[in-house]
Amino acid sequence: MNRVLITAQIIERSALRYTPAGLPALDVVLQHESDVTEAQLPRKVKLEMKAVAIGPIAEQLNRKPVGEPLGIVGFLGAPRNGRGVLLHITELNDIV
């Protein structure tokens, strides 16, 4: 299974673009920060991750302000250049 659930905020957003099939697409950089337990020890996690949203999710994400915490669901894939990991966003949830 390839499913990611993460709370993050947009720290960088490219202009909304369109795929060759005419679907809206949005490239963003997300930032996540949390405290977790690993091997029964507390650990602070902070990371930045490249992500993409395609279709109606791209338009929805484009309306979200930079810095607003979001609940994000998606899957991991390779970016176009084939190097690294890219989060493909499939669902957004507001964090209250």
Rank of each mutant, 00 (worst) to 15 (best):
A25C: 15
L26D: 09
L26M: 12
V28G: 06
V28T: 06
V29C: 09
V29P: 06
V29I: 12
L30C: 09
Q31N: 12
Q31R: 14
Q31A: 15
H32M: 12
H32S: 14
E33F: 14
E33V: 13
S34C: 15
D35I: 14
D35R: 15
T37Y: 14
E38L: 07
A39Y: 02
A39F: 02
A39R: 03
Q40W: 02
Q40P: 01
Q40Y: 04
L41P: 00
P42F: 09
P42G: 05
P42H: 03
R43A: 09
K44E: 07
K44S: 13
K44C: 05
K44Y: 10
K44Q: 12
V45E: 05
V45G: 00
V45K: 03
L47T: 13
L47Q: 12
L47M: 14
M49F: 08
M49H: 07
M49K: 06
K50C: 09
K50Y: 10
A51Q: 01
A51Y: 03
V52K: 07
V52F: 04
A53G: 09
A53R: 02
I54R: 12
I54S: 12
P56I: 13
I57L: 11
I57A: 02
I57E: 02
I57T: 14
A58P: 07
A58M: 06
Q60T: 13
Q60F: 11
Q60H: 11
L61V: 05
N62K: 08
N62H: 12
N62M: 03
R63K: 14
R63C: 02
K64L: 06
V66H: 04
V66A: 08
V66L: 10
G67M: 06
G67K: 05
G67A: 06
G67W: 03
G67H: 04
G67N: 02
E68M: 08
E68W: 03
E68N: 06
L70F: 01
G71T: 01
G71V: 00
G71F: 05
V73N: 00
F75P: 00
F75K: 01
F75T: 01
L76I: 06
G77E: 02
G77H: 02
A78G: 08
A78N: 11
P79F: 11
P79V: 06
